[in-house]
């Protein structure tokens, strides 16, 4: 019985297929919102699905002179990492499928896999644009990883647990956005940086380096990376909502909260100009990391007193 439940959780709900479709739905909302902000109509609701199927059915060109195994395997790892991370977070406000103490750290590292794979994929393809894109992607990863970790550790400290389910349970009664506003801000912006959304899209800046690390990818590989990114968008939104916006709740309410967050994210995306990579890094280390650290220290001091 348990095995069956585990299989279902892995393949269909809340893992596997459900996550993929939900991720695509979030991606659509994101694209649609940006289009509306830009005065356009925007894509139809099935757009990400059609894109993914089309890419999956397309010919995959594997350039010569690359490590073919890596070329094929990296997108799979990227998507797998993103999907695996979904198992530990309260998707649409439900209890996570798996949980153990310390799963927050594991989840964060699983979420980093996508960027890491993107970077490696870019470095593997030997294309000039990909190389620059890979360098930028990895640079950006190193700059936002620390502040995001700090921002998500804030809730962990007040909840006195490194277990996502416990933190989100704690957050139910404490709206942490009020007590830790800086942490919330850093977490949201860090999430955007993680997903290379504008204005942090220097690693895939179209006007400079075409499509960054993924320039040489076509067909299946590209589809998997895209899906990975959609899933990560969803997981990221879920985490921030669960930690800062009132924790787990009934699915509908939770869904509404993540959508609200997505509106904010889409607004920021369409309002701002792309930052140069050194500006992105500067922003993080000069403000993001320090702010998160300050918040962190306040938190510890407060905990110590209490």
């Amino acid at each position: 019985m348990n095995t069956l439940r585990a299989v279902i959780a892995l393949l269909f709900f809340p893992g596997g297929l459900f996550i993929l479709f939900a991720g695509m739905a979030y991606e659509w909302v994101d694209r649609k919102l940006i289009a509306r902000f830009q005065n356009r109509i925007g894509p139809r609701w099935f757009q990400p699905l059609a894109d993914s199927i089309k890419l999956l059915a397309k010919e995959e060109v594997i350039p010569t002179d690359v490590n073919a195994i890596l070329f094929v395997v990296l997108p799979v790892i990227a998507l797998a990492g993103a999907l695996a991370s979904a198992l530990y977070v309260p998707i649409i406000g439900l209890e996570p499928s798996y949980s153990f103490s310390g799963d927050l750290i594991v989840t964060l590292y699983l979420l980093s896999l996508l960027t890491l794979c993107t970077g490696l994929a870019g470095a593997n393809t030997l294309d000039r644009f990909s190389l620059v894109g890979a360098t930028r992607a990895l640079t950006q990863m190193f700059s936002y990883e620390a502040p995001v970790l700090l921002a998500l550790l804030g809730p962990a400290i007040v909840a006195e647990s490194w277990k996502i389910s416990v933190i989100s349970e704690y957050a139910k009664s404490h709206w942490l956005i009020i007590t830790q506003p800086i942490g919330f801000l850093v977490a949201v912006i860090g999430l955007m940086g993680k997903l290379e959304m504008p204005p942090f899209d220097a690693p895939e800046a179209e006007t400079e380096i075409v499509a960054g690390a993924l320039t040489e990818y076509s067909g299946r590989g590209l589809a998997l990376f895209h899906l990975g990114k959609s899933v990560e968008l969803m997981v990221g939104l879920t985490l921030v909502t669960a930690f800062y916006l009132g924790g787990v709740a009934n699915p509908l309410l939770f869904f509404a909260k993540t959508l609200m967050l997505l509106v904010v994210v889409a607004g920021v995306q369409s309002l701002l100009t792309r930052l140069r990579i050194e500006q992105t890094v500067g922003l993080w280390w000069r403000y993001g990391a320090l702010l998160a650290l300050a918040q962190f220290l306040v938190m510890i001091a407060y905990e110590g007193v209490a």
Binding site: R31, A35, Q38, N39, R40, I41, G42, P43, R44, Q47, A50, D51, V61, F129, E206, V210, A211, L214, T215, E216, Y217, S218, L222
Partner: peptide, 19 residues
């Protein structure tokens, strides 16, 4: 651009021929 908006037909202008 907004008046015509090809994205509503799913058309995206890509930079890389591979895509």
């Amino acid at each position: 651009t907004p008046r015509y908006d090809l994205e509503r037909f799913g058309v995206k202008l890509q930079g890389s021929p591979r895509h």
